[in-house]
Amino acid sequence: MNKFNFYPFLLLLLVFTSCEKDIDIELKTTEEKIVVEGVIEQGIPPYVILTKTVGFFAPTDLQSYQNSFIKGAVVTVSDGITTVQLDEFIVDGFTVYSTLNPAIFGQVGRVYNLEIQAEGKILTSTTTIPTPIPMDNYWYKDQPGFSNFGYLWFNLNDPPGLGNAYRIFTQRKGKDARFIPAFGSVFDDKFFDGLDFDAFIFRGQEPNSTAPDDNNETSEYFQQGDTVIVKFCTIDLPHFNFWETFETAAFNDSNPFAAPTTIRTNIEGGGVGVWGGYGVTYDTLVLVD
């Protein structure tokens, strides 16, 4: 709903008269920034991926992508009592910082501080794992005009008091390789504080997916018969602010009329990205109308 955008219609209007051509643009060079992708969930180890921003027209082959990963950083996570330095792992050729020390596995209600020393810089951030708020109910319904395709519906009873924020991921068994964020994956309770209400989930997809079912007229729907695991998370507000602006930016990047969206990072010290805590609940459903 908050993805409503005026401009596609303008584009539609212009289709008949406009024309386009390729141009070359000389970009300004800017300093590289450290990109933080850090996650901490209850019951599992925290992990942090560190990369660098790359020039807009820089090559995007696998080798260049791997080169953007930062190795040899000192990454520590602290819950105020226990401080643990994360180890460097290589997963499929990519560097990931994590730990097998259960003392720092995520716990509901705790505040986690992150510190990164890399490339001569020190970056810090803080996040919380809020108490998970489970969904009341999920169901599937065919979209009018379609048989076997529709949204995944839910009923949520938001606790009174502003400041609750949520993020939704789904994984279709046998179809998706991981939990994929829903399209417009985050929302907060600004509009429905304390309300008991129904809403639906637009199915998200892998970025630049070439899968046939991500490129047809039913790409935003789930299919009847799918087995879907929903990962429903509560997150804190700075974490919410990051994803809300990040997803808007990703959505608007191809829209020439929108003013560039500034992504609100919770990383301090000159980096970009997010250090985010998730209070998670999982539900598995078989979709039947």
Partner: peptide
């Protein structure tokens, strides 16, 4: 205002 660089998260 045009982009000068890019990055990837998730």
């Amino acid at each position: 205002t045009l982009p000068v660089s890019r990055y990837v998260v998730q």
